[in-house]
């Protein structure tokens, strides 16, 4: 069977002082191949933990991840990762960063060069091929990250706030790029964000998580990602439903934050 299944995941961190944090509790979710899921939630609700479990960097205390019929036990090239920032290899040129995955597989250099050239075209960085990554702007670096991930042709792409550190204008351009790449490549994508607008624009499905313990609060199916492909995202934002959904989700998260504040005041 194809697709990603997050099966009843719980994650508990034991703390050195003897206590523990229940970062995730009974999280279950099925993703079809080619679906784009955005995950939203107040800070500390376990989004990063969930993504790390799917990536295979962490073993869950309960439950399992199943991808295309086999259980995930560790990191693998079938699940690519795009980090927020600083995960590029600054000792390599843009070209070598993008070609890293194929190199590790021992792909012939001619074939590799074709893939790298193609992807640099797609993300619009052909002219910066020989540059060192630290010479690029933040937005360009994230495009290199995307290209590096795609060069490996993974089944699933996991993104942890990939656009979080970018300025608003660059961010908007990158959102269009993500949508375009998603449509063109048909990858399964999980994208974590703390921006409600971004989650609405980029999520074919949207997951709102709640904290303490981290769990799925509500799930949406949205039309905006499909509308946004090949269209100005500002037009999508004018869609009457968009503002309604945004207010609804903002309110939801607002309530959660209030509750957290209230609880910590009680504790104090």
């Amino acid at each position: 069977m194809s697709g990603l299944s997050i099966d009843n995941i719980s994650m508990r961190f034991d703390l050195p002082d003897g206590g523990h944090v229940q970062a995730l509790k009974d999280v279950s979710l099925d993703l079809q191949a080619g679906e784009l899921l955005s995950v939203l939630g107040p800070s500390g609700c376990g989004k990063t933990t969930l993504l790390n479990i799917v990536a295979g960097f962490l073993a869950p205390t309960e439950g399992q991840i199943v991808l295309n019929g086999h259980q995930v036990t560790g990191p693998d090239a079938e699940r690519g990762m795009v980090f927020q920032q600083g995960a590029l290899f600054e000792w390599m040129s843009v070209r070598d960063n993008v070609g890293f995955g194929p190199s590790m597989k021992g792909m012939p250099s001619k074939e590799k060069a074709e893939i790298v050239d193609h992807l640099l075209d797609v993300v619009g960085l052909q002219d910066f091929k020989e540059k060192a990554v630290y010479e690029l702007s933040g937005g360009m670096q994230q495009r290199v990250s995307l290209a590096r991930c795609l060069a490996n042709d993974p089944d699933v792409i996991l993104m942890d706030e990939p656009l979080g550190a970018l300025d608003a204008l660059t961010r908007e351009k990158m959102q269009s790029l993500v949508l375009k790449l998603w449509k063109e490549t048909g990858k399964t994508i999980i994208l974590i964000t703390h921006s409600v607008e971004e989650a609405l624009l980029l999520g074919e499905r949207l997951l709102v998580m709640a904290p303490r313990p981290g769990r799925i609060h509500k799930e949406y199916r949205l039309p905006f990602a499909d509308l946004g492909v090949g269209q100005d995202l500002r037009e999508v934002k004018k869609h009457p439903d968009f503002a309604v959904k945004r207010e609804e989700i903002l309110g939801m998260i607002w309530d959660m934050e209030e509750e957290i504040m209230g609880r910590s005041e009680d504790a104090a």
């Binding site: 560790g74 090239a77 990762m81 980090f83 995960a87 000792w91 590790m104 597989k105 490996n152 996991l158």
Partner: peptide
């Protein structure tokens, strides 16, 4: 995150040593 990225790109332990840890 660099080590994680390298693992997700299919690098082996030895490759991580050679291409990530040493240059870093």
């Amino acid at each position: 995150s660099k080590v994680h990225a390298a693992y997700s790109l299919g690098a082996s332990k030895w490759q991580i040593m050679r291409h990530v840890i040493i240059p870093n």
